[in-house]
Amino acid sequence: MAPTVPPLSALMVKDWLGGLRWETKGYKGYDDKDNRVHQHRNLLHHRHSTHIAKTLVRNLATKSRPIISRCLADIYNNASERVHLCDRMEPEQFWAYEKNSWEWSQSFNDEAFWAFTHKLFLARALYLDTVPEGHRSRRYPLPEALDLFRDRFYARYGPGVISGSIFGTHPSQGELDKVQKKIFAAQKTRDTYFQYSQVDSEGDGSDRLKSTVVQDDRIDPNREKYYWWDEVHVEPTEDIVAYYFDLGLQNPRHGHKDAYQEIEDALKQAEEEEEREKLLDKERTGLEDDLMMVDVSKEDDCIGDMGMGGLEM
């Protein structure tokens, strides 16, 4: 008998301890009764929520939020080693390869996992914007894995990273054109991967819209969920080590493979072919230069002989 699947909101870490804020910053408006309301999106309620929840519960055989956080963190930690492929792949394709690197997560639908991923990054950005640095929770591994990927991504594609390579030099126009193309490509990669995950974003528009009547436009009605000085409700600790030990080789963290290897092999082959083509071009150019030098030498010899004969005469 299949386990009962709770809603996604019951499986994900929440509030101040979780390190993720699932409510967007929102905006002000009016409801049908002309009440001043604050409207925001709830990132845990969307058309992929049920599919994500079913995959987590059935494939991990648990409803434990700490265990789910740990297993998801494995995926994003592993992805941080592959940021060099992001400019070669669309985000849905990139994250499809990543989730296919783990046996338990292969059954995620590609589109659903990409949507879930950009919602996770948005939830993390919203939390960092809401809670001051000195008060942020480090209880769960998933937020830190998201931070690691984002840091490495921006270290490679961030503004100023590429243009900084020519700082203090006197580049030619050709070099400037190449750098400009790289800057444009990096910006396109950033926009593609994080278009829905900036702190002021309301997501992709597919999440449930919620309205709250407010008296003061300056008040964020969801901020109180993340007050770090409130009395903290500590969840009962779960024996994660025993959970993994009991599963043995069926432990979902053991079922890892390198799904990206075919991409890496294809890129390596393309680079090798490009190098071979460059060598062939160089050899052809060198042969043509040698032939031209031979012709010039013969012509010089003829002219020299005639000159010398004329002087002797």
Rank of each mutant, 00 (worst) to 15 (best):
P252Y: 00
T169N: 07
H135A: 12
G19A: 05
N251R: 01
F94G: 00
Q39E: 14
D31I: 02
D281N: 15
K63R: 14
A125H: 02
I162N: 05
K268H: 15
T117A: 02
D32E: 10
T55I: 07
T24P: 02
A2N: 07
P91M: 03
W114A: 00
V296T: 13
Q187G: 05
L56T: 04
D32L: 10
A259V: 06
L60K: 02
Y227F: 12
I263Q: 01
G255Y: 04
T62N: 08
Y260Q: 02
D177H: 13
N222V: 01
E274R: 12
Y226M: 00
L8W: 08
Y260W: 05
A53L: 02
R150D: 09
D295I: 05
Q187C: 06
N42L: 14
H40F: 13
A79L: 08
L11G: 01
V241F: 10
D74W: 01
S297Q: 14
D31P: 01
F108H: 01
H45K: 14
R41F: 07
T4K: 06
D147F: 06
G18M: 07
K63N: 03
A123M: 09
K25Q: 12
E90Y: 12
L279Q: 14
L44D: 00
A61T: 09
W102H: 11
P236L: 11
V131I: 09
N59V: 09
R58Q: 12
L85K: 09
